[in-house]
Amino acid sequence: MSAMRDRFMRVTGALLDERPDLAVVLADIGYGYFQDAGVVARHPRRVLNVGIREQLLVGFAAGLAMEGIRPIVHSYAPFLVERPFEQVKLGFGHQGLGAVFVSVGASYDAAAAGRTHQAPEDVALMSTLPGWHVHVPGHPDEVEAILRSAAGGRRLDYIRLAESVNPEAVPYSSSLTPIRRGSARGVTVIAAGPSLAPVLEATADLDATVLYASTVRPFDADGLRRLLGAPEVVLVEPYLAGTSSAEISAALADSPHRLLALGVARREHRHYGSRQEHDRAHGLDAAGIRRSVTDFLALAA
C-alpha cells in the first residue's frame, strides 16, 4: 500500500474513534483494509460498504449527509470521480451538502493496469463544479493535515492520494507556499503536490522562484500575484496538462506574463509499465521538466 493511502486509512480509523458524526462509505475497494485494521469491528455501522455500485456509493453518501453525517467517500479515482460524476454534481453541490471524497490511483499510478484504471482528468473534472476544495497532497504528513481539517468541516473536499511522494512535507496551507526565491529575470515555477520533488531537482541551478500548492481549488490567485517572482511562469501538475492554466491566466490578467503548462498529455497513451516510465513519457520527470523549462526560457531570450 502507498504511504499516502496507508496514512489516510490509519487517520480515518482514528477519526472514526474521535468523531461520532463521521462515516466511511466504500464500494468494496478499501473495505478489506478497514476490516484488517479492526476499524469495521470497532465501528460496524459507520464503515458502510455498498458493494461495487459507484452511482449508489455517491448517492448513498449524499443521503447520509442530508442527515448531518459527514461521509468520507473513498475509491479509485476513475470510479469515484468519472463514473458517478453526475451523482457528484447533483448529490452534493446541487443539494447543498458536504462530504470528503478521497481517491487513490492518481493519474497513472496504476500504470500496468492500463487506461481503465487511470484518471488524470479528475482534478479538471472536479474543478468544473462549484464549491469543491481540491487537494493534491505531496506527502503523507500533508494527507493527515488535510484530512483532519476536511473531516472537521462541513464543506466539499476532494483529496487526491498519489504513489509519488516528496522527500519532505510542506506545512499544510491552503495558500501557495514559497519554497525557493529567484529574481524577476528568472522563472516562476508552480509545482502541484508530488510534482515538487522533480521540479526542485530540475531547477536546482536555475534562477527560479518555486511555489508549492497542495490545495489547487480554490486556486490562490492573491498569493500568486503576491509571490510572483518572474513573469515567465511554468505550471507543473501531475495530472491533465493545463488543468490550472485558466486560474493562472485569470490571476495574472493585469500582469504581462507567459505561461507554460506541463502535465499529463491529453492522448490515449497505450503503454503499461511503471509510473516512472509514464513520468518520462509525459516529460514529468526531472529531466523532462528541465528540458521544457530551459526550452521555454530560450524562446524568451
Binding site: 449508489l56 448517492g59 447533483l90
Partner: peptide, 25 residues
C-alpha cells in the same frame, strides 16, 4: 421539498443513505 430532483435515478440511492443516516442517528 427534501430533494432537488429532475435527472432520473438519483432519488432512490439518496433515500437509502438517508434511511441509513436516520439509523445512525
Amino acid at each position: 421539498v427534501e430533494l432537488s430532483s429532475g435527472s432520473l435515478g438519483h432519488g432512490l440511492p439518496i433515500a437509502l443513505g438517508l434511511a441509513a443516516g436516520l439509523d445512525l442517528e
